[in-house]
């Protein structure tokens, strides 16, 4: 019997015709838990990024989710948003570039959270960026974040210029990370860069 990844309650998975015909996706999370996430589908843009698309608001449930996923290192939670991310990112015209972790931090966490999300969603990606520092955005104040000079280096020059490069991260807060990553990609020769994040910190807490 399958149980919900978040609340551990058994999932009521009655076989249905939709499932049998492959229309309905296999779920890993119960509707009660999913309803606590607030879907916003917010799209904004700035001078570096053609669009910044965030799927959910960073609310209490999202905070708990990221805590369990990243700090309790529960990689199984990558599957919660697998189908959501897949429906947004699956596009042959796009090249998916995850925001990387510093190798030392990745080793400490035992996995890179963005890579895990994409792997769970079954989306191919290219690791075009490398992180230069071990420092983490979440531990910095806004002014400290804006003062950083360079966060990433590109691991290869960009050749196929017709494609859109899509940066993926778990959360968008001040936009510093995305700004730096987009800048680095453009320096390497990318024409159009977009961003997709799972959560977005909204003004109200």
């Amino acid at each position: 019997m399958n149980s919900c990844l978040l609340c551990e309650k058994p999932l009521d998975d009655q076989p249905t015709w939709q499932q049998f015909l492959g229309i309905e996706k296999q779920t890993s999370t119960c509707p009660v838990c999913l309803a606590k996430f607030e879907r916003i589908d917010s799209i904004t843009k700035n001078d570096q990024l053609g669009s910044i698309y965030s799927l959910y608001a960073y609310n209490e449930q999202a905070r708990e989710y990221l805590h369990q996923f990243k700090f309790l290192q529960d990689i199984a939670l990558a599957y919660v948003f697998a189908s959501d991310l897949r429906s947004v990112l699956i596009d042959p015209k796009k090249i998916i570039v995850p925001i990387p972790m510093h190798p030392a931090s990745k080793k400490r966490r035992t996995f890179a959270q963005v890579d895990a999300l994409l792997e769970a969603a079954g989306i191919p990606f290219q690791e075009l960026l490398q992180k230069t520092t071990e420092s983490v955005m979440g531990e910095k104040t806004r002014s400290e974040r804006l003062a950083i000079i360079e966060l990433f280096t590109a691991s290869a020059d960009i050749i196929s210029n017709e494609k859109i490069y899509v940066l993926v991260d778990d959360i968008y807060t001040t936009g510093t990370t995305m700004h730096h990553a987009a800048h680095t990609l453009k320096q390497a020769g990318a024409e159009r860069v977009e961003a997709v994040t799972l959560f977005r910190a909204t003004g109200k807490k």
Partner: peptide, 10 residues
Amino acid sequence: SKFTSFQCAQ
């Protein structure tokens, strides 16, 4: 069912 296997970076 309560174990998860993954590619560990450690």
